[in-house]
Design a protein around this nucleic acid. Structure first.
Lengths: 360, 360
DNA sequence: CCTTGGCACTCGGCAGTTTTGAGTGCTAAA
DNA sequence: TTTAGCACTCAAAACTGCCGAGTGCCAAGG
């Protein structure tokens, strides 16, 4: 046999590839470890169990397979899955029904919150995994309007609408008391003056204006600046809203049969910050992102995999949509699912956005 | 032995009471069925197992105890718990630490959403059960202000502030396009005209005004009415916000060791409508409400118990706060916990509310 | 040189049996 | 009225043997 190097895992024997492929597929389907005998009997190879054992032993040496205990079959490692996904997998295309469900569900919603919520639900339902949809910080988007409403004497709710239609409500407490007229004026001023800029740009301008104001001693201007800065600050932690749907679905999975593993996984899902973190790292990547088990700290901790994709167009990435599930999942089905949904989502949001633009 | 009648469960033998009490306590502590031998050995009775057996047999006949299977010890029935709670339980007063946690947590939050969220978290953490905080519909409360903000061309966000400081944001779609000036005017009009009324009253007035408008053909008035009605309609389903926290805690409980029971319970918690329903029935009651297992349909379904209490003062009940847990829970600790938290919550909200009133 | 059959060995899971222990009810004696 | 004793029940734990799937290694065969 040709020596097997493992630089980039690129050059496995053709036969070894086929074997690995088959093992992964069978293991995904059954959840059980796969043995040589079973593999031989499945008919795709005209090899005896003994020969397959040799191949499997090699694959194990290379770290693509492992056995849970001696005298059990082999299961893929995360490395095995990774190789499978990048080189061996043929994505199943979506069924008519799946496409319909997505289109219909997403089509019915209009508010952006609803859209994302519905999307995560649909994703969860179709994948029978945990569906996640994530909208990243507003910081990078242009602002269309800002308004201020008194909801208490020193409490003001600021409503920020971004150019992509996202609405953020933020409550701020102020030192001054603002009258309704003042708030209205300030809102108009900021909106007309700063529409089209990002929050960050707005903040910088406001800060620059501070000096200007000192010279003029314009009380109104001062109030505007204070309020504006207050409103623009710290929008970050609030609005990376994360929609997690279908957590109960993991209760079905055989790999979470015992309560301990289940508990661990559940707690992991509670840690939204962590989820956001890992999704954010995916956000930078183009196209479909798959993170398997030990490939990242968080997923290793909990034996997860994540299949995710950015949605929104290149110029304005809007967020991430993805699936969280056990390492053993039907990647061939999940991949096109996430892919399709992310595109549908991007299209939908753009559409809604456009509609508005048009009508005005 | 004196004959034991069971009218209102009021007249059990003193000894029988003591035995029941001990059984409930021990069972709560251990989760295991309690046998005569164990009971005799615990030292609180100078009776032999045989005598205790007699007492226990009686208690079983009366429906306070039951045995999971012959030759196991006895377990309290829901009726047994009920008797325990109403007649036998000595509430443990809260520890210093518990009080501190509650005060501090609740003290730090200011927005009403935060307060409720934090409260349910604290409750869950301290009780190690599922903590629930529920804010009922706004319908019954007076409105302080209503404002309208354009967030799209035919999308308007309506911000309703009630007199108790609750803020509701509602997005409505309209047939007309409203200008900023119009929205501002309408907001002012409605606020000045209708402040102090409940949503229901406002709706009725608006409807009455429809006729008036017909006569006058005042376009502005017409717009105001349409928008107003739209805003006031269907606030109901949105804002009985329910904060459920600590669902993961049930994963620890031995009674949910097997995955099936666990799954059932989890799904039950998903059914927020049902939860709301049962909490609403508790809402009518004064003081601490405890619902045990079979005492209501929903709890029977899932072998829950609920310990809940209304918060807010008599004149303006604000909502419910409570704990959901297995029938076997430390009622003696949960009761004062819920009690204290509900009071803290009521006080806090009133305070925040007052503060505002004061400053104006 | 690769493939294959054979062989010895390992180990988890299953079924059946036994043992143990906690608990009960009943009865008769104190 | 209490208690000790006895016979009985039953679930859970422990022990048993056994089967089967799987492995590694070796030596024979194409």
């Amino acid at each position: 046999m040709m020596p097997i190097r493992d630089i980039h895992g690129e050059d496995l024997d053709v036969r070894a590839r086929e074997v690995l492929r088959e093992i992964v597929l069978q293991h995904i389907a059954s959840g059980e470890p796969i043995g040589s005998r079973m593999l031989s009997k499945c008919g795709r190879f005209s090899l005896s169990p003994a020969s397959l054992r040799n191949v499997m032993a090699d694959l194990e040496d290379l770290g693509y397979l492992t056995q849970p205990h001696t005298s059990a079959g082999r299961v893929p490692t995360d490395r095995g899955y990774r190789f499978f996904i990048t080189h061996l997998m043929k994505s199943r295309s979506l069924s008519q029904r799946e496409r319909e469900v997505i289109d219909e569900q997403v089509g019915h919603a209009h508010e952006i919150d609803d859209i994302l919520q519905v999307a995560s639900r649909a994703l969860s339902a179709l994948s029978d995994q945990v569906g996640v949809v994530f909208m990243p910080t507003l910081l990078q988007f242009a602002i269309r309007s800002m308004d201020f409403i008194a909801i208490g004497d020193r409490k003001i709710q600021c409503v920020i609408v971004s150019s992509n239609g996202v609405v953020v409500n933020k409550v701020i407490e102020t030192r001054f008391v603002f009258s309704r007229d003042e708030l209205d004026k300030i809102g108009r001023y900021i909106t007309t003056e700063f529409a089209g800029l990002t929050l960050d740009q707005i903040r910088r301008r406001l800060i620059r204006m501070t000096e200007q104001e000192r010279a003029q001693h314009d009380e109104m201007l001062q109030k505007t600046i204070t309020l504006g800065i207050e409103a623009v600050n710290d929008v970050v932690p609030f609005d990376h809203e994360l929609y997690v749907e279908g957590a109960a679905s993991i209760l079905n999975k055989p790999e979470y049969a015992d309560a301990a593993a289940l508990r661990k996984t559940f707690l992991a899902l509670q840690e939204k910050e962590k989820l956001v973190e890992i999704l954010e790292t995916c956000l930078s990547g183009e196209g479909l992102q798959i993170v398997i088990g030990a490939e990242s700290d968080f997923t290793r901790m909990h034996d997860f995999s994540i299949v995710a994709r950015r949605y929104g167009n290149q110029s304005t990435p809007l967020g991430m949509v993805g699936i969280i599930g056990p390492m053993r999942m039907e990647y061939a089905r999940m991949a096109p699912l996430v892919d399709y949904l992310s595109r549908a989502l991007g299209r939908k949001i753009e559409e809604e956005h456009h509609e508005e633009e048009h009508e005005s």
